[in-house]
Amino acid sequence: MKRLANWRLVSLFAMLALALSGCSGKPFVSALRPAGEVADIQYDLMKLSTYIMVGVIVVVMVVFIIVFFRFRRKDDTIPKQVEGSHTLEIIWTVIPILLLLILAVPTVAATFKLADVKEMDKKNSDALVIKVRSHLYWWDFEYEKQKIVTSQDLVVPTNEKVYFDLKSLDVKHSFWIPAVGGKLDTNTDNVNKFWLVFDDKRANEAGNLFYGKCAELCGPSHALMDFKVKAISRDQFDTWVKDMQAVKAPEKAQTDLAAQGQDIFNKSCIGCHAVTPDVKPEAARIAPNLTNFGERSRVAGILKHDKEELKNWIKNPETYKPGNEMTGKYPEMTDAELDALAEYLMGLKVQD
């Protein structure tokens, strides 16, 4: 009975694991739904290795079953003792070598292809290079040639190589967009580089929005260190860049309530948060850039993008992201002050 209970428990966990493996309320958040050239290459390698492993298991199981039934002991007679077959030994030595080569050759070729970032290092290159900087527990993205810095929402053009320059400004993190490719560590002592391509058709299927994650355990809010990727056409991207570059001063409040919020922001928040997209030195990146906060898809990367959730976040960020760097950095605010500040922040937009 005890063994039966254990088997039932194992079966229950196996069914739960299978069910949970398919759970995701977010579109294109799985590496098994590739949405770009890098993801396609990595997915093909996963399929190849899986086919090889399954093939080996099937062959071994067939041989095992044949031997089990054909050569099972029928009496007490001791079978003839032999040293072995040189032919069989050669076969089972050569086959693993061939399988290893079948797996290794495309893997090594893909590794060199995905590591080729010569284009981004050229002096007069036209390549789009984005400097990704990771923090506890948020991301900022610097388009150095375009002289733009933004946070949490990464904007990229589709159907072309986008190069990434990765570094961490506190502890080790890992930059990963599951559906498009990656992942690669962001370290404090060196820069990692790689490239991705965002497929336009699959981007349209996903509503032009992909999900990014931190894939390196970095602290109590590691699982909440999300960012969003807006994959749009090159024309739309160029328009976005021009709109961001046109912002030379903080957006003016459009209503009396927003004006009150701007005044609160300038007294309590401006010391950490920028509201212009011009490039800042790394030492000044102590909080997310809020230039186009009103156009973003999430508050703090995880909450619904509306005034209520924004006020909840400002009121007590520790509740939503334990160990974050924002907790305790500003005075407590009344409900009226929170209303005004939320009104101002939600009005920070660069596009109509």
Rank of each mutant, 00 (worst) to 15 (best):
A336Q: 07
K307N: 07
S134A: 11
S151L: 01
L101F: 13
I95F: 13
K74N: 12
A258M: 08
I177R: 05
S168G: 13
F198I: 04
V149H: 07
F69I: 15
N192P: 10
Y51K: 06
M61G: 08
D165Y: 12
P27D: 13
L45D: 07
W7Y: 09
I41D: 05
M244L: 15
P79W: 12
K183M: 14
E309Q: 09
K329M: 13
M53C: 10
E318V: 07
L345C: 08
L20A: 14
G294A: 05
N187L: 15
L32G: 08
N316K: 05
V350D: 04
F164D: 00
K267F: 01
V156N: 02
I286R: 01
P331V: 05
S21V: 02
S30W: 11
Q260F: 01
S49I: 10
Q260H: 04
L338S: 02
D306C: 10
L290V: 00
V171N: 11
Y163D: 05
F210D: 01
Y137V: 00
D170K: 14
G22E: 00
A109I: 15
T50F: 13
T334I: 12
V94L: 14
P79G: 04
K167R: 14
Q260P: 00
Y330K: 03
K311H: 02
C23S: 11
G84V: 10
D44S: 12
Q81H: 09
L99Y: 05
K242Y: 03
A179I: 06
K147L: 07
G219A: 01
L99Q: 05
F237A: 05
Y320E: 00
P322M: 01
A39R: 03
A179Y: 00
H222F: 13
V54K: 06
G181V: 02
M53A: 13
K80C: 08
G84Y: 09
S85K: 06
L128F: 12
K123S: 14
Q42G: 07
L154D: 10
V156G: 02
L99I: 09
D335I: 08
I286E: 03
N192A: 10
E144N: 10
A259P: 03
V247F: 07
L45M: 09
V191N: 11
A340C: 09
E325W: 08
L12R: 03
S30P: 10
D263A: 12
D226P: 00
S134Y: 02
M46W: 12
